[in-house]
């Protein structure tokens, strides 16, 4: 069981790391957008795999910082990109999920 002081200190540190992440989130979303657009333009397996990886990482990370809706949108983007990799035409769903992640991350 944490003491009140220790809990307050932990919450203070959590606030600091969340603040730093908020600035990084915009950058991560911009990078993710570039990867998705490049994958759509070039339709190469390598580009697609890179975009899937970036969406997967953001899905796990954003929610841990309290950006639950960004994380859920990134998870939706990951699933859509995986279906595209499997041969389905899911670009509309992927771009919609990307737009949702960007809106929630603003």
């Amino acid at each position: 069981m944490m003491s009140t002081d220790a809990r307050d200190q932990a919450l203070g540190r959590l606030g600091e790391v969340r603040e730093r992440f908020a600035a990084r989130l915009r950058l991560r979303l911009a990078e993710l957008g570039e990867l998705v657009e490049a994958a759509q333009r070039q339709a190469s397996r390598g580009q697609l795999a890179e975009a899937v990886g970036a969406a997967h990482r953001l899905a796990g990370t954003a929610g841990s910082y309290g950006y639950v809706e960004v994380g859920e949108a990134a998870a939706g983007l990951e699933r859509a990109l995986q279906r595209i990799a499997g041969g389905e035409d899911e670009w509309a769903a992927a771009l919609d999920a990307l737009a949702r992640a960007r809106r929630r991350g603003e």
């Binding site: 944490m2 220790a6 200190q9 932990a10 540190r13 959590l14 790391v17 730093r20 992440f21 990084r24 991560r28 990482r57 796990g60 990370t61 841990s64 910082y65």
Partner: peptide, 19 residues
């Protein structure tokens, strides 16, 4: 973890909260 942001928040949780 390969994601730096997860290492940052995980380290905070394990050290500041877990002690």
């Amino acid at each position: 973890d390969d994601d730096e942001d997860i290492r940052v928040i995980g380290e905070m949780a394990l050290s500041a909260v877990g002690g």
